[in-house]
């Protein structure tokens, strides 16, 4: 049995080769699937109503990374998205803007022009999203292109093939390299979100290991999924990643954010996530700096629920823009 269940004090940059890195990650406490599901089910019974719900809906809106990641994306589509991000409900100016938009690298300049100096961030997927099957040089070029175009946040994918093949060092080194590529000569570096694509990992133990690996390598955020693989952001996976950032901060003092992405479509889904944040890592993470939703259709449902609370009647989807 391991002497201690959590590697502590954890080095920020684990030295040694792949074997040492694997030993470090394998020393993490395991995750019991039935127990995780039981906890998720228990948290799902929390009732968030009235004032608490109103507060949570606005918080959730402020946490949305409004996303379009389609082959058919056009400058026009991205401009519409940006307009919605800034002013989600033109009929109700008390609705806050979302956290960021999220687009492919080639459309970053479009978003940058549309958003200018507004507080809405520009996130770009990079590193040959979503499969990540490209040489490192291509991934870095992809990243630098997006950063140069004005991306304030980079959502990279890990090399799941390398992870599943046991080459954790390769995954780690790539994250470190991409992090370096996020540097910007004229300002602070782009904020790095590392997508684990948990739907392609072998187990919840792997989700925890990949989370720690990404955090060791310098991730500012760990993100569940690309949205292109099912299952995406399940509550169980988000819970495990929340536990990982909590433990990582306890071990290293560094706080890392969490972004569930894909599959969160309703206000109920979002509130369940916020309840998990509240009861797993607490108020320190209940902030767009530390928790995001990667979503597109979620925003309209949040707006409809918000209107229901404000006006007492439930509006139809046609009252909100389909962008």
């Amino acid at each position: 049995m391991p002497d201690t269940a959590t590697p502590a004090p954890a080095p920020l940059s684990p030295a040694g080769g792949n074997a040492a890195l694997r030993a470090l990650l394998d020393g993490l406490p395991g995750v019991d699937e039935a127990g995780v599901h039981a906890r998720v089910a228990d948290l799902a019974t929390r009732s968030v109503k009235t004032t608490a719900k109103a507060h949570a809906i606005d918080l959730a809106i402020r946490m949305v990374d409004l996303t379009t990641l389609e082959g058919a994306d056009t400058p026009g589509k991205v401009r519409a998205l940006c307009a919605k991000a800034l002013l989600p409900d033109p009929a109700d100016r008390t609705v806050p803007p979302v956290a960021a938009v999220c687009v492919y690298p080639d459309l970053v300049p479009v978003a940058a022009r549309a958003l200018g100096s507004t507080p809405v961030g520009i996130a770009s997927v990079a590193t040959s999203f979503p499969a990540g099957r490209a040489p490192l040089e291509a991934k870095l070029l992809d990243t630098r292109y997006a950063v140069a175009g004005g991306a304030t946040e980079i959502d990279m994918v890990i090399d799941r093939g390398a992870f599943l093949a046991g080459d954790h060092r390769k995954v780690y080194d790539e994250i470190v390299a991409v992090k370096e590529a996020c540097a910007r000569p004229d300002g602070p570096p782009a904020h790095l979100k590392v997508i684990l694509e948990t739907g392609e990992l072998a187990s919840y133990d792997d989700v925890r290991r990949a989370s720690w690996l990404a955090m060791y390598a310098g991730a500012d955020f760990i993100k569940t999924s690309t949205g292109k693989v099912a299952p995406a952001a399940t509550p169980a996976v988000t819970l495990i990643m929340l536990q990982a950032v909590r433990d990582f901060r306890a071990a290293t003092g560094r706080q890392v954010g969490v972004k569930p992405a894909g599959g969160i479509r309703t206000t109920k889904d979002a509130l369940r996530n916020l309840v998990m944040v509240n009861e797993t890592v607490g108020p320190d993470w209940l902030d767009p700096r530390w928790f995001r939703f990667g979503a597109s259709s979620l925003l309209n449902d949040l707006l409809m629920q918000r209107a229901k609370l404000t006006t007492g009647t439930y509006p139809g989807p046609d009252y909100y823009s389909a962008d």
Binding site: P119, T152, G218, D220, R254, R289
Partner: peptide, 19 residues
Amino acid sequence: RPAPHPGPDSPSTPAATAT
């Protein structure tokens, strides 16, 4: 508001805050 998240306009990156 200011920015609900650290962007290029904000000097405070998560890492910097956490340190």
